[in-house]
Write a protein that binds this DNA or RNA. Structure first.
Length: 287
DNA sequence: CTATCTGTTCTGAC
DNA sequence: TGTCAGAACAGATA
């Protein structure tokens, strides 16, 4: 999402802004009007727009948030072809915006528009002082966020050490803890444990060094896959005018309860609950 | 109709 | 300090 948005809105000036939900939208017009976006980036699941002054906008999409950018260019007001963005994959991508779940709208100086939609209203937009997030751990706002999985900081040694500290944790809860690894959510936790052939209810402290190595590789693999099919495919998703064909088509175990294990091990995908979250796995090949 | 689920994370009680 | 249930909220599905 960030990679796609960056190309479209970096260096654009925000001309005006609509607030459609005071709970979700915790910024005002004067935080954004007539201010240029300098940089679009991400830390864990926070999306950050650095503005040209000393502030930044922080977005969190939680479960059902979406950021959809569009530019109509003379196509009238029903212009689905030129959309970018990401988040919750529902029919809003194929429909006219704004809709009833649109919580904020940004209007840019090139006549493009950015919609922040969120069905459940868990998501939010805040403004902060940039100087507070510049330093080491990106400041107090992000001070409890762990290592980025796609960077070198994620090592078997680091994970083994953390696993000692949280000795009661199951491996699935462990890799989903944002203060340990940043950005692995419920889907990619199930997927990466499946690829690494590790049962989700195992205790983190019992994971062996060779398994940590495999798990790190698997986490990176499923995230890259998600970026490939989910991140950039919101464009395809819209262009195709069909509802299918996104990252979820490539999932191996998530929400595939009762289906044959794609490994052809003869096992059947089971669902259980770990840490309050639905967990999908193959009891035959995940040990 | 009821019950259960959800691409998340914070809080307060123990 | 670590763990756990519950909460915030709206809708889809069985």
């Amino acid at each position: 999402m960030v990679r796609g948005l960056r190309k479209k809105i970096e260096n654009r000036e925000i001309l005006s802004f609509d607030d459609r939900d005071k709970k979700v939208v915790q910024i005002t017009e004067k935080d954004v009007n007539n201010i240029r976006i300098e940089r679009v980036w991400r830390r864990a699941k926070n999306i950050i727009f650095d503005l040209e002054n000393d502030t930044a906008l922080i977005f969190h999409l939680k479960m059902t948030g979406q950021l959809i950018w569009e530019k109509c260019e003379g196509e009238g007001d029903f212009c689905l072809r030129n959309r970018r963005g990401g988040g919750h994959p529902d029919s809003a991508w194929l429909e006219k915006l704004p809709n009833k779940h649109t919580r904020a709208i940004f209007y840019f100086d090139d006549e493009s528009v950015l919609y922040f939609n969120d069905i459940r209203r868990f998501g939010w937009i805040k403004v902060i002082q940039r100087s507070k997030i510049k330093d080491q751990n990106y400041g107090p706002l992000f001070n409890n966020i762990g290592v980025e999985p796609l960077e070198g900081e994620l090592t078997p040694e680091y994970l083994a050490e953390m696993a000692e500290r949280f000795s009661n944790r199951k491996i699935k809860q462990f890799i989903m803890d944002q203060s340990i690894i940043a950005g692995v959510g419920n889907i990619y936790a199930d997927e990466s444990l499946y690829v690494a052939k590790i049962a989700p209810m195992r205790l983190a402290k019992d994971i062996k060094n060779s398994e940590w190595l495999k798990l790190i590789k698997s986490i990176r693999e499923v995230l890259e896959q998600g970026i490939k099919y989910g991140g950039s495919s919101s464009e395809n998703f819209v262009d195709a005018f069909g509802k299918q064909g996104e990252a979820h088509e490539h999932l191996l175990v998530y929400r595939r309860t009762g289906k044959k294990c794609p490994n052809n091990c003869g096992g059947v995908i089971e669902r259980t609950v770990i840490g309050g979250r639905g967990t999908h796995w193959c009891p035959k090949c995940q040990k």
